[in-house]
Design a protein around this nucleic acid. Structure first.
Length: 728
DNA sequence: ATGAGTCCTG
DNA sequence: CAGGACTCAT
């Protein structure tokens, strides 16, 4: 029977096994963005960043990545086509070539001067390597060096010049497909290169250089003219084929472009109404821009690509395809510019501001992310946590409704609710709500979960700390099934500072509430903010030195929630492997949460890391205690997991409360007990099942518990958090 | 190189 | 809790 010391051993074991959770956030964000396919988001983002992003990115955001993918493909294809035809025509290669030549000339030291007249040798040895970039490069590269000890340098010079000319011809031909400017410049460069050729002489070769050259010369063409002809003939065929393929690609791109265009306008139509009432979302703004310049956009988009006839296309060389793609990019940039312009005009009208845009964009993004996360959480919890015969958690809901003061008409609720961002068991207002002035759908629409902190009841009679109730000794009145009769929740001793995952869990997961937020029916109702604020006031009052920033105080009240979210959501990546909804995992960082909730706090590195530190520590403590008590229960001979009941009298609860809520400043939400119990059960079961042999066995538990997390109380998001608390 | 976040230790 | 090592990502 393992005692709880094992924990430390295991901790040590898992030392290097930890999963770094902050890894894929950005990916997640972007993938979610894509998955969401929300034009609201995309447009907003595009508008917000358009000026900073390059053309490709703008285009991607604006018309969707499909198009840009096509463009990229086209560009890529174009260049690969060129590569295939004549590598020398590749701008990259040319650039490289010219650069290296220049570098060579610029080298003062003779020792390091590239032995240009040494290059012809490869001509004699090579067998028409005409398609590999490497060979081309090698051949052209002034870096190529061979031992010339036995060679007639003059002859080689001659040959080399011949080869060089052929190559330049080759390049020029290849460049026919490129924009004139480039071709011309390259041509000139090449000519210059030829002219200055004979000035370079060979002085010496290092062995290393020789080796490098030897490697290369095997691939170099022996007969430049011959290989060139082969090149041309081969590439002519390739040209035809490539042209055909490019044509197909372009046609495909046209199709996609049209589709995107249609989609774009459809989206505008669908969101048009949402922008009514002076609430201009990014989407509507953008769409307005589109419609405002409808004819022009149509022209821009269709004229260059869609309207181009196939015949015309067929006559286009690969360079023209590239031009086509570039033209598309330009068009997109232009469109983007118009968007920005339109946006600017709106802004000048006072309808919106860039700041608002960014803010709203962020909010929208967060909502989308959380929605997706919530889905995953729901599904996972439903599948894993409640796969067993349902425990009486459902009864928590009515009981909580009884115990909490739901004041849906509380004006504070609405103002705060509009700012509400929830994590963990995410409850968000609908994405559009985040935009300025968009009213909440309904006063009764509960978009928030239970606050983490409940104000102490006015009747501050302390609950009897009955030491009798211990883990492994179920107490009827404390069992979840009898929570509705349990008055303990109202009882002031329920003051726990940290997040209470189950608040969201009970309602959302158990009741199967929509992941996008509590519906008005599923939600427990709005929490009376005054309760929590009053509760917090106590804390605040005792922490006047932190008056400017409430966050230093808050970690104690939000730490575990944040920690849970933070630590476990990272594991959603793992869960995504299990979940059929694997596309929609989410991960939040502490810092982003902190910054969102404590907007009045000027976060710097120090503050952020300190808070993170606190959260980590809080979280750690929670789980350490869980494991400890689970092992203790096992040691005590508890056989069935259901015999483990966490109540207000449980030692576990006391320990936690002592740690997080020493002064009992906070009323601990009922759901905390639920989550604590579930956590304990998880640990117990895992240990009993010997899953703890796995160094990372806790992670599975983290996953489960993470999903029970409830959101940070909305009050914390208020910029006037402190004032509000003190006013209570 | 730096930051975010976790894990371990004291 | 804090310090610091460590990992991972940018």
């Amino acid at each position: 029977m393992p005692d709880h010391d094992t924990e430390f051993h295991l901790n040590r074991q898992t030392k290097r096994r930890r999963v770094d959770i902050g890894v894929k956030r950005i990916l997640l964000l972007s993938s979610l963005l894509r998955a969401a396919k929300s034009t609201v988001i995309i447009d907003a983002m595009n508008s917000h960043h358009s000026k900073k992003q390059d053309v490709l990115e703008c285009q991607e955001a604006q018309l969707g990545e499909a198009k840009s993918d096509v463009l990229r493909k086209l560009l890529k294809s174009g260049s690969s086509y060129e590569d295939n035809i004549i590598h020398f025509s590749s701008a990259t290669i040319i650039t490289k070539l010219l650069k290296s030549n220049k570098a060579t000339r610029g080298t003062g030291s003779r020792e390091s001067v590239i032995p240009r007249n040494a290059e012809p040798e490869p001509l004699q040895k090579d067998t028409c390597s005409n398609s590999s970039q490497e060979s081309a490069e090698a051949y052209l590269s002034p870096l190529g060096k061979i031992s010339l000890n036995h060679l007639d340098s003059e002859r080689l010079n001659e040959e080399y010049l011949q080869a060089k000319r052929a190559r330049v011809e080759n390049i020029i031909r290849g460049m026919n497909h490129l924009p004139n400017v480039m071709a011309t410049s390259v041509e000139k460069d090449c000519e210059r290169e030829l002219e200055g050729e004979t000035e370079i002489t060979v002085q010496s070769f290092s062995p290393r250089e020789s080796n490098r050259e030897n490697k290369r010369k095997q691939k170099l063409p022996q007969q430049q003219q011959h290989s060139f002809q082969q090149l041309v003939s081969t590439h002519k065929e390739q040209k035809v084929e490539e042209r055909r393929q490019l044509k197909l690609q372009l046609e495909d791109m046209q199709k996609q472009l049209r589709q995107l265009q249609e989609k774009f306008f459809q989206i505008y139509d669908s969101t048009d109404s949402e922008a009514d009432g002076g609430n201009l979302s990014e989407d509507s703004v953008r769409s307005d821009g589109m419609l405002g310049d409808d004819s022009m956009n149509e022209h821009l988009i269709q004229n260059s690509v869609a309207d181009r006839s196939d015949n015309e296309m067929a006559d286009l060389g690969p360079g023209c395809f590239l031009d086509e793609a570039k033209a598309l990019l330009r068009e997109q940039a232009l469109l983007d510019g118009k968007m920005a312009k339109h946006e600017g005009s709106l802004r000048s009208k006072g309808l919106m501001s860039l700041h608002e845009v960014g803010k709203h964009l962020a909010e929208t993004l967060k909502q989308e992310l959380n929605s997706a996360m919530s889905q995953v959480v729901d599904i996972y919890v439903d599948m894993n946590v409640f796969s067993k015969p349902p425990r009486p958690l459902l009864q928590v809901f009515p009981s909580l409704e009884d115990h909490f003061v739901f004041n849906r008409n509380n004006p504070d609720f609405h103002t705060a609710n509009q700012r509400l961002q929830c994590f963990g068991n995410v409850i968000f207002p609908s994405p559009l709500d985040s935009f300025v002035g968009v009213p909440l759908p309904c006063a009764n629409d509960q978009t928030e979960a239970l606050p983490l902190v409940v104000r102490k009841s006015a009747s501050e009679h302390h609950q009897s700390s009955d030491p009798g109730a211990q883990i492994g000794h179920p107490h009827p009145s404390l069992h979840p099934s009898s929570l509705s009769e349990n008055t303990g929740f109202i009882s002031p001793s329920f003051r726990h500072p940290f997040s209470l995952p189950l608040a969201g869990y009970s309602f959302q997961s158990t009741l199967g509430a929509s992941s996008t937020g509590y519906s008005s029916k599923d939600s427990p109702g709005s929490m009376d903010l005054s309760r929590e604020t009053t509760s917090l006031r106590t804390k605040m009052a005792s922490s006047q030195h932190l008056i400017r920033s409430c966050s230093p105080v808050l970690p104690g009240s939000t730490a575990d929630g944040l920690s849970l979210i933070r630590s476990e959501c990272g594991d959603l990546q793992d869960m995504s492997d299990i979940s059929p909804y694997s596309g929609s995992t989410i991960s939040f960082s502490y810092s982003s949460m902190l910054k969102m909730y404590f907007c009045d706090v000027k976060f710097n590195r120090c503050i952020t890391s300190q808070l993170i530190k606190w959260f980590s520590n809080f979280r750690e403590f929670y789980y350490i205690q869980m494991e400890k008590f689970a092992r203790q229960a096992i040691n005590d001979g508890v056989a069935a997991v259901d015999d483990i009941i966490v109540s207000h009298e449980s030692e576990l609860y006391k320990v936690l409360n002592m740690h997080y809520n020493k002064a009992n400043d906070f009323e601990v939400p009922e759901s905390f007990l639920e989550v604590a119990q579930i956590t304990l059960h998880e640990f117990f079961s895992a240990i009993v099942a010997s899953r703890d042999v796995d160094p990372s066995w806790k992670k599975a538990i983290y996953k489960v518990i993470c999903k029970l997390d409830s959101e940070v109380p909305q009050i914390f998001k208020s910029a006037n958090c402190v004032q509000e608390l003190l006013q209570e």
